[in-house]
Design a protein around this nucleic acid. Structure first.
Lengths: 349, 349
DNA sequence: CTGAAAGCGCTTACAG
DNA sequence: CTGAAAGCGCTTACAG
């Protein structure tokens, strides 16, 4: 709390000009070894810390930090990707005085991802935020970005890539374990457990798989012999699910039942249950999709797990900006907490 | 995204100097009505927004924002108040370049709260962050602060005061309803429910009461005839709880049981249950006290509700700073979300 | 290799 | 009532 030491004080102590101090601070060439070392010693001694605000004030006007955001196009159904975008926009607003420019690029499948990624790399850009939905194409983007020394931050999903990268996403395996805990609490040890993977042709299912694995691991660790039935349904988005003979068989059993839906489509379950005339089934799903929230309010879904997409977007921008301006990568790898939502705490969000 | 309009451009458009523009922007006297109106019109037209960073750069060096934080002294037992303090310190660190100075004051009871509050008001201070543990004394502080036009922000607990004030805290009533939902999920409709208020002589019990009310309201709304037994134990912090005849009576009943502890002392429950030789009781409590976390890991406590004390501290500083520097009070009243913690999602925090 | 000057957008004395 | 200058801490040309 003693008077903050600035570049000016350092210069005075070292008997040089502030320009020279600046050169040393930024590791720029053109300083003799002796002066450099003298200045470095003083910087260390005084515990000098650069004033990031003053620094940005200059640069903001001349050279904005440019970040490209490459995400799925918001579809007409559920515009999930509007949510992280909201967070991104909030962060941009907060950082606007510090000089930031975010440009959005959209993709719909592997091909457009690839072409948009190429477009991004052609632009004059400092960092990239995207999602690793397509392994090969993500590797390609990551490799090319690496060549240009452009950092890439992935949201939503973690997959193994050829080069190290940054990830801000929920640990889906942990989320599955939490779902196991919650569903077990409602259904008990004598229950029948179902995992519903309601998928579509296109799109990644990495999160689905890891959530299922975590769910099974929970039971394997805590309640060894609990039988879990995995049901995978390929179903286009929109449209309802009808009677299913395989399901009918399962529903005949009298034991208490729990269903874990490994993605946002748990809102489809109540109608299936109705069609099969089954009731008293506990349901755990993901994401605060409005239809899910509706089911939560009607006690048709009992728990929702939130991966905080808005926070993901917000913190992605903040962390990337911090990295690009202060070379601080500490916030570029984040485990989003597994947030548990019930009817009584869903409004506050 | 067109070129940002600055004070200089405004001045040029209005054919005045930037000094005059500055006077208008800050509503300072010494500008003729005509020029003032001309400038205001241009500001409106151009959508000028002041560059907060540049503005602070000046002031940071001359006049720091000074915030007094008056909180309970951290006790040797559980230093709960270390947690919001951590959040406060993080926020201060983040804002250090913008010129902030936080001074801590500590109290142990109503008397020291009062004397420390007086001390705070004598200092040259821009804002106060504290907790409303003592109604009369809080009113006194709030009244005096109002006279000096110093904003007061209360954390942790909301109570009704004579003047309007700012609150950043969890809605305890909602938290109680969430606890009801969670415990009911584990215990079911045929169960016996207990609310444990484990209190001490000193200290406020407003949160305890509201949590209990919310809990009862949950059952009243959803499961009308569920019997709930309220048990209030006055017990000093530290030391264990032994056999209790009244409890023994209740524990004789064979029905499934659920216990809701309305504060952080749920870690005392497992030992009581052991003493009474009762098992299979579901427990919901508050706060990530290390003993509570230990019980959560041992499956002796099943849910914990977190009121995010670190976030409360962090956001208190950020919001107060924003209010004092940008006159933006929008973040000074916050409902902290009711965060649900189980064994499987407690590490990430 | 080093220094002096101009500037980022805004604020604060000071001069008229 | 208004303007011109100096300055916040740092960065960037430019001059030597």
């Amino acid at each position: 709390m003693n008077e903050l030491i600035g570049i000016k004080q350092i210069a005075k102590l070292a008997k040089v000009s502030i320009g020279t101090v600046d050169r040393v601070l930024h590791d720029r060439p053109g300083v003799s070894k002796t002066t450099r070392e003298k200045i470095l010693a003083i910087i260390k001694e005084t515990g000098y810390k650069k004033n990031a605000v003053a620094s940005r004030l200059n640069l903001a006007a001349r050279k904005k930090v440019k970040i490209a955001v490459l995400i799925p196009e918001a579809t007409s159904n559920w515009s999930y990707w509007e949510v992280p975008k909201k967070g991104i926009d909030d962060a941009v607003e907060e950082l606007s005085d510090l000089g930031i420019l975010v440009t959005y690029f959209y993709f719909t499948g592997p091909d457009s991802f690839e072409s948009q990624a190429k477009l991004v790399l052609k632009k004059d850009i400092d960092g990239i935020i995207t999602v690793p939905f397509f392994k090969e194409e993500s590797n390609c983007l990551l490799g090319n970005a690496k060549k240009n020394k452009i950092p890439v931050l992935f949201l939503d999903t973690e997959i193994q890539l050829d080069d190290p990268a940054f990830f801000i996403r929920q640990n889906s395996y942990d989320a599955g374990r939490v779902a196991g805990r919650l569903l077990h609490g409602l259904v008990g040890e004598e229950g029948l457990y179902f995992v519903f993977n309601i998928i579509t042709d296109r799109g990644m299912h990495v999160n689905n798989e890891q959530r299922e694995n975590g769910f099974r691991e929970f039971f394997k660790t805590n309640f060894k012999d609990t039988p879990i039935t995995i049901i995978t349904i390929n179903h286009p988005i929109g449209g309802a699910l009808g009677i299913n003979d395989e399901l009918e068989k399962w529903f005949k059993d009298k034991r208490p039942k729990g269903i874990f839906v490994t993605n946002a489509r748990s809102y489809l379950i109540p109608k299936i249950l109705e069609a099969h005339k089954v009731s008293n089934v506990s349901v755990v799903g993901f994401d605060l999709h409005k239809d899910n929230l509706e089911c939560l309010r009607n006690n048709e879904i009992h728990f929702l797990i939130n991966q905080k997409p808005e926070f993901q977007g917000y913190t992605a921008i903040k962390s990337m900006f911090k990295y690009l301006t202060e070379d601080d990568s500490s916030d570029l790898n984040i485990d989003i907490p597994v947030e548990i939502i019930v009817k009584e705490n869903c409004q506050a969000l």
